[in-house]
Amino acid sequence: MLPEEGSDLQIMSHAVVGYPSLEENQPAIDGLVRAGVKLIELQVPFSDPVADGATLVNACHQALQRGGSLATALDLAKQVCQRHPQVSFILMSYLNPLFRFGLEDLIGAAAEAGLKGMIIPDLPVENVEPLLPLCDDLGIAPILMVTPNTPEHRLERIGRAARGMLYVVARQGVTGKQSQWGEEFRCYLQRVRRYTDLPLAVGFGVRSEADLHALQGQAEVAAVCSKYIEWQTSLGSERAAAKLAELTAAI
């Protein structure tokens, strides 16, 4: 189940399929679940991830060398969705691997694997709209992104097409750098709320307990993704999960 509007802040975290290895993906995800994470993105590694910063770019490149792909992502999704029915898994991928697979087929395969939603950063809302009937039929939520510079008319269009939750990019730029949560950010969230009743997932730059406290009462989901992958890289999956457990305990 995806969270509901107005529910308490919860953490969404991340796995790059094939990073640090295909074998390690499942135990790492088990660790996240034990840490209390109920929303997990499975990122299909891509050769040219233009919305990602250095941490995820490097993770993608290593994952590709270790067999990460859309096919292995769907396999992993099947396993982890069965093992952890209380957790919502979301497919995150750049467009080309999905385009090659066939977007409509992919939506079917994602539903069959038990995934709850999809995040495709380089698929604009105009291209998502034609897919909505199929997504709605199969229960796959296309999770769309809004950014601080998204103009009102696009917010409205995105608000209409979005399903599940709305991914609120906290600042301009790519993943993996700190964001600010001041008055400007609060106004931004209020502006976004005018166009949707969906829960808001804030991502890009959520990296610490302080960030989570700042988001409590403002958003329903905080995406701790690059930071988790950084921990996974420097500390290993087990200790990275322990770090996540500290964060979930803090909220």
């Binding site: 891509f46 040219d48 859309l70 080309n96 691997p97 697979f101 380089d122």
Partner: peptide
Amino acid sequence: AETGIAQGFKTLFLQSRDGQL
């Protein structure tokens, strides 16, 4: 090269079967 969508546009890209450039 096959039709693909990356770097912001759709064109013929040299790529693997599963869409890696």
